[in-house]
Design a protein around this nucleic acid. Structure first.
Lengths: 211, 211
DNA sequence: ATGAGTTTGTGACTTTAGTTACCAATGTTT
DNA sequence: AAACATTGGTAACTAAAGTCACAAACTCAT
């Protein structure tokens, strides 16, 4: 089993248990990893790739909450597992994703047995919490054009490339607005010389990263 | 020490430890319980009263995240304590508040020693997480008039009274908008016969609770 | 009771975002 | 190539929210 960066995170005894009880899973771009209302029986620990986590309201509108990448975990999953609850969120593979699913029986056992596991779980809770706070900040305090810029920067950060491959429609979806609005704002950024627009592709220019 | 509802939540041995190591604290309406950037050394467990938790952005704009009431705890505090971090949020007493502050040394120790404590902490994390999700939903998917109605209903729920004592300015503050906007929406609700407006007071009428 | 401070009401205006409609360009299928 | 689906551009309009300005009503300390 490929543990990737996890091998630096946990003590040897715990790594052996992860090898024994963890279940390695592979997903490809666009795969649905977790859906709303499904029972959560395993806790995922991301080995490689990026997962997008969404929240939806009654009217089926969706918004992107945050990304999970290498060594991250969705802390929501923990309590859901433990109390046999249904998922409040949806998770989709952003690219090729490899994760290890930890069965719920072990989650609890390891908490007392391995300090590194306990710290990992607690750190994970905290990180996700802060991501949500940032998300709230972004929606509550920032205008759509700023959120769009932040979205593109995050895409750049995750892929490492200044060419962001995504359609206007997909962006609108993740920011919970409409395609026309995004096209308008993108065109404005292009007029300001910050980006170049192509079909399914946005090239971030040096001016984009200034100030 | 008054443990209130906590005595039903934890096992006797843990209750004795809480008595011994917990530090009882009282706050009155408007008191600042925790501020941005302060180091968190204790984890609060609310015995009675209600705490408002806020988040602010760079420009000092604030928004109300959620309320903590009897037996609730701020899960943010846990990881902050453990890693000696600064607070990401602000907490203010909504009314007369009594809480027990647990020193960080005990937090960790009890986690393995008392299953009821571990469950409490985990449940707390999850509840706060869901509160944040609701908050995001509210901001991202609902218009201000709906959020205002939800705000008033929450106030009613917490106080038990259909007379909400709060100024328009305070509401605007908590919903991160301006006073004028709130006054306008409130006047509209009054015109619809759903509420009655007085100085520093809003009376919720039966029609307010319909549908 | 007077004056200062707070709270609320309202009109007029701007900005931001959402909506509808339509067309053109590009890609895919047959 | 023809037919179809997807993507992006744009105009015109509406709705929601934010901003500014000012007046009236109320509270409270002196």
């Amino acid at each position: 089993m490929n543990l990737g960066i996890l091998s630096q995170l946990f003590e040897p005894a715990l790594l052996r248990e992860i090898e024994e009880f963890g279940q390695s899973q592979q997903f490809k771009e666009g795969d649905l990893i977790m859906d709303y209302g499904k029972y959560v029986r395993m806790m995922p620990v991301v080995v490689s790739g990026t997962i997008k986590v969404y929240r939806r309201d009654e009217n089926a509108k969706e918004i992107l909450l945050y990304y999970l990448s290498s060594s991250d975990s969705c802390s929501m999953a923990y309590s859901c597992c433990m109390e046999a609850k249904k998922s409040e969120v949806k998770a989709v593979a952003e690219d090729q994703v490899e994760l290890i699913a930890i069965p719920h029986t072990k989650l609890d056992e390891w908490l007392c047995k391995y300090p590194s596991w306990k710290n990992y779980i607690m750190r994970s809770f905290n990180e996700r919490f802060i991501e949500l706070l940032k998300s709230i900040e972004s929606i509550a305090f920032h205008k759509l054009d700023e959120r769009l810029v932040a979205y593109l920067k995050e895409k750049k950060r995750l892929s490492g490339s200044t060419v962001v491959k995504v359609s206007h429609y997909a962006i609108a979806d993740e920011l919970a607005t409409s395609r026309v609005v995004i096209s308008r704002l993108l065109k404005q950024l292009e007029n300001e010389g910050k980006i170049l627009l192509y079909r399914n592709e946005i090239k971030l220019m040096p001016a984009f990263f200034e100030d």
